[in-house]
Computed example of a mutant assay.
Amino acid sequence: MASKQTPLIICFWITFSFCVTEKVREKTARRRDTELTDKVIKHQMCVQGVPGVQGRDGNPGINGIPGTPGIPGRDGLKGEKGQCVTERFEDPWKPNFKQCAWNSLNYGIDLGKIAECTFTKQRSDSALRVLFSGSLRLKCKTACCQRWYFTFNGAECTGPLPIESIIYLDQGSPELNSTINIHRTSTVEGLCDGIQAGLVDVGIWVGTCADYPRGDASTGWNSVSRVIIEELPK
């Protein structure tokens, strides 16, 4: 009985050893296959492929839900008071002037109006420039003084002061020659403010100087005399 079991046992152990060896070989082969597969996958993962074609832009998204209104801000500091500027739209300034001229006035009065020139003033906020040019003379035996001046509608200028010229003569003593008779072209010129718009009678007058006696005056002898009037912007 024992002799019959011995071959069976030997056959079992041979078969068992073979099976165990085959399983070990299968596991080793599987492990090698797994390691090889992992190496291939890792190698493929490390190699960078060719870039693909760039995609197109997507459609615009829909507007989101409006946000909640913020808290109102506080009032700022009060600013400084500004300046009030008023624009004035006026017509462009146009020249406005006039000349009156006389040939050989030969006016020998010592007191009174010599000549007059009427002028049309366009604006009340402008100034008048006046000029008299002509021959003037004064003579006397003792010290004397005469004054030539402008008037506007019969009154002297007050804006700011009268427009005038004077001639003073002092013979010195009765023993000296008292027949000096020199005629010289002279001028009376100035600006006057505060004259209203409209017709203005501009006159040239002769009179006395304060605290001096009157002499023998002459205006416009043997020559042209003229008055020039010009309206100027202020």
Rank of each mutant, 00 (worst) to 15 (best):
Q171M: 08
T15P: 00
N153E: 08
G76Q: 01
C157E: 08
Y168I: 15
T158N: 11
L176P: 07
D110L: 04
V20G: 05
T21A: 11
M45K: 13
W93I: 08
C144N: 07
C19Y: 13
Q99N: 07
V224W: 07
V227W: 08
A197V: 03
S124I: 01
G82M: 01
T219L: 10
S126Y: 00
K121V: 02
Q5Y: 12
L232V: 09
V188W: 03
S133V: 08
G198W: 02
G82F: 01
C100W: 05
P72Y: 09
A155T: 12
P72D: 08
A155S: 15
F16H: 02
F152I: 00
G52W: 00
I71Y: 00
Y107L: 13
C11P: 01
I71S: 07
I9S: 14
P7C: 12
G61L: 11
S126A: 02
K42P: 05
I10G: 11
I166P: 01
P174A: 04
G198E: 10
W13N: 06
G112K: 01
V20N: 06
W102P: 06
C46A: 13
R56F: 10
Y149C: 09
L176R: 14
G194E: 03
I182N: 08
L36F: 11
G112F: 02
E156Y: 03
R30F: 12
I166T: 07
T6M: 12
I204G: 04
A143T: 15
Q5M: 10
E22Y: 10
G134D: 00
C84R: 08
D125R: 05
Q44T: 05
F89L: 11
E80R: 14
L8T: 02
A115K: 15
V227K: 02
T179E: 00
P66I: 06
R56Y: 10
I182A: 06
G198I: 06
Y212G: 04
K78E: 15
K98F: 01
S178M: 09
I182G: 05
C100I: 04
A210E: 15
S3D: 14
D75G: 05
I71W: 00
G70K: 01
K113H: 02
R88G: 12
I182R: 04
V85S: 14
C46R: 15
R32E: 11
P66T: 06
V24S: 08
F132S: 07
T86H: 05
A197Y: 02
L191M: 14
A217Y: 03
G134H: 00
P69C: 06
G172Y: 01
P95D: 08
L161D: 14
I166E: 12
N103L: 08
S173A: 13
G159Q: 06
Q171W: 15
F16S: 12
G220D: 00
S225M: 02
G172T: 01
W102Y: 03
S218M: 14
V50D: 07
I114W: 02
I9L: 12
P233N: 07
D33F: 03
R56P: 09
E87R: 09
T68G: 02
K4Y: 13
F18A: 14
Q54K: 06
W13F: 15
W221D: 13
R88L: 09
D75A: 10
K98Q: 03
D91E: 13
R214G: 11
Y107E: 06
D201Y: 11
E230P: 10
T34D: 15
G49I: 06
V50Q: 09
C100K: 08
R56G: 12
K234M: 15
T34A: 15
Y149T: 08
G49Y: 02
W93F: 09
K121M: 05
L77I: 10
N153W: 04
P174I: 02
